[in-house]
């Protein structure tokens, strides 16, 4: 096709990229993140379908209605899905490899109807199952970010 056969050696160009990012949270997320600093979790409830959304967002995707009714949510809930992750993956916040293994789960917090995706303290698959009660383990110094919750631990 092209003159490909003539080049004996396929060359390449290395372009390591260092990207900074900076995002505005918007009003609903700002209230939620500010609440985390005080260990307070809140969801937005849809007047149309009654669904209590975490993450809170300005619009119900199913009803297409604006959301503004805040409802309290507990820092404990039920494990709805889980896995133990063993593949080295880069942390989306830093680009650094995340230590493995680590637990991941979908947790339905008491008072919310959606589940949230988060990390689990437990890494033994034999001790994890759907339906377990779990609770949030908070960071010492709260910063107003989702990782103010370090992970969820199984409530004993």
């Amino acid at each position: 096709m092209t003159a490909g056969a003539i080049a004996a050696e396929p060359l390449g160009v290395a372009c390591p990229m260092d990207l900074g990012w900076r995002y505005a949270s918007g009003a609903a997320m700002e209230r939620f993140l500010a609440g985390l600093r005080e260990r307070r979790i809140e969801a937005l409830r849809c007047d149309g379908c009654g669904r209590r959304y975490l993450p809170p967002r300005p619009l119900c995707g199913d009803c297409r209605l604006p959301l503004d009714r805040w409802v309290p949510v507990a820092a404990a809930g039920t494990l709805e899905a889980w896995s133990v992750y063993r593949l080295p993956i880069l942390d989306g916040r830093t680009g650094e490899p995340r230590p493995t293994p680590y637990g991941i789960g979908l947790v339905r917090l008491d008072g919310a109807d959606t589940t949230i995706n988060h990390l689990l303290a437990e890494t033994d698959p034999g001790r994890l199952r759907i339906g377990l009660r779990v609770r949030a383990v908070w960071r010492e110094e709260l910063r107003g970010a989702l990782d103010d919750i370090l992970h969820f631990e199984v409530a004993r």
């Binding site: 092209t2 003539i6 372009c15 390591p16 990229m17 990207l19 990012w21 900076r22 500010a34 970010a145």
Partner: peptide, 22 residues
């Protein structure tokens, strides 16, 4: 509220047939 961060990604591109000869 603003959230900031940084990430490094090691891209490497094949020059391909024409650019390799060049």
């Amino acid at each position: 509220m603003i959230v900031e961060g940084r990430v490094q990604i090691p891209f490497r591109y094949a020059a391909g047939a024409a650019a390799s000869r060049f």
